[in-house]
Design a protein around this nucleic acid. Structure first.
Lengths: 216, 216
DNA sequence: CATCAGTTGGACCACTGGTCTAATACTGGC
DNA sequence: GCCAGTATTAGACCAGTGGTCCAACTGATG
């Protein structure tokens, strides 16, 4: 956690530091980033840096918090839709907006991607826990709503669904970027639709009938 | 790649080094591991180490190669099953064996888990490429067989299915470990079955009929 | 003016992965 | 047995890492 006095730091200098740090962390990830380099570029001496922040991990957390905050502001709050169809419409809109964001603000996207490291990095454990809670809570609320509306299956533990969803989301994020790099924006759009279709296939309640139904 | 002369290194010393390194890498991941500490513990001087290996990343690759090799030996080679049912039986058996392995050989499992870092780590790019090829090839062959047998959907790019599968697999690996830690081996077994059911739901061809089928 | 908390710069620390060199061990040819 | 030349070894050394510490400075209050 940033030291309490961090709020007393001149906003402009603070902004500079966070900006330089965001660049460095996005470029090299947490481990690869050089704290010394950040401080030098932002015109901070060691003394000042450690006066306002507890260390590299603390600064990283501050950068990530800012990034997540900006991201959250781009999405409306989640409200329980009226029916299953509305549920899927709302979820789809949010996912497509997210994929757009990946291309829009590449630095933030790379930063967000580095979060997967944070989840397991020993030095970032504390920082991670501050983010995990709200994130999981949001997902859980969505899944619960989905269940209540009959849009989401109930035969599998919610925690498993949640884990799987985040796993696919993360993995396909890289895949989407590839599509975009190789074939441009339309491919990204198409890819995102396909990924979302996978989400749906995974979440939708299983048909109860015997397996040998009609297939494509 | 290990230097060619690495093969001339006394097998026993080599074994010691790889063993110590496996421990360190499994414990701290690639970045967190201390090369100096590994060398000290294994009784290697800097000179010798850099004489036989190109550096930290090279040693890491060697450890990983050994681990993957051992793992591969535990599984029979893949052979195209006779029908869709056989396909799912074969895949299921392999997945369950893999989850057993996670608990059986915790060190290897942690090492394998660190591979996800290797995929994106700039210093491990080269090493990763050596592993990615065969791994992807194996998966692709399996998916192709599945398609040929009508066990796997064909309406989505193979690369997307592959990415998603690996994403879920990796994410649920952590989930399975939690199940095991909280509720023991039976929970692990149950969890693995559920995860595999998700795989199946994701891969199985979509019913062609109109969406509002019978649901649970 | 003196006091004292808040702030600042930067020397310093143990450690990191990696390079280099000088010494030693070992080899085959004579 | 001796020598030349290569293979092997130990470890000093290097620039860079994140982090600690302290002396000096600042500005407000009495």
């Amino acid at each position: 956690m940033p030291r309490p006095r961090a709020s007393r730091l001149d906003p402009e200098r603070r902004q500079t530091l966070l900006d330089v740090a965001a660049e460095e962390f996005a470029e090299h990830g947490f481990d690869g980033a050089s704290y010394n380099r950040i401080l030098e570029r932002a015109g901070f001496s060691k003394g000042v840096a450690y006066y306002y922040f507890e260390g590299k991990d603390d600064l990283y957390a501050a950068v990530l918090a800012l990034t997540l905050d900006t991201l959250a502001r781009r999405f409306d709050a989640w409200q329980r839709p009226a029916d299953a169809e509305g549920f899927w419409r709302a979820l789809r809109a949010r996912y497509l907006a997210l994929t757009t964001h990946i291309v829009d603000d590449e630095r933030s996207a790379r930063l967000l991607r580095s979060m997967s490291q944070a989840r397991t990095h020993p030095k970032l454990q504390e920082a991670w826990l501050r983010f995990e809670g709200p994130l999981v809570a949001w997902f859980q609320r969505v899944l619960e709503d989905g269940r209540a509306l009959g849009a989401v299956r109930g035969d599998v533990p919610e925690s498993l669904l949640l884990t799987s969803l985040m796993g696919i989301g993360q993995a396909t994020d890289g895949w989407l970027l590839e599509q975009w790099a190789h074939a441009g924006a339309p491919a990204l759009q198409r890819g995102a639709e396909q990924v979302f279709a996978l989400f749906e296939d995974l979440l939708v309640p299983r048909p109860v009938g015997p397996p040998p139904a009609k297939r494509r």
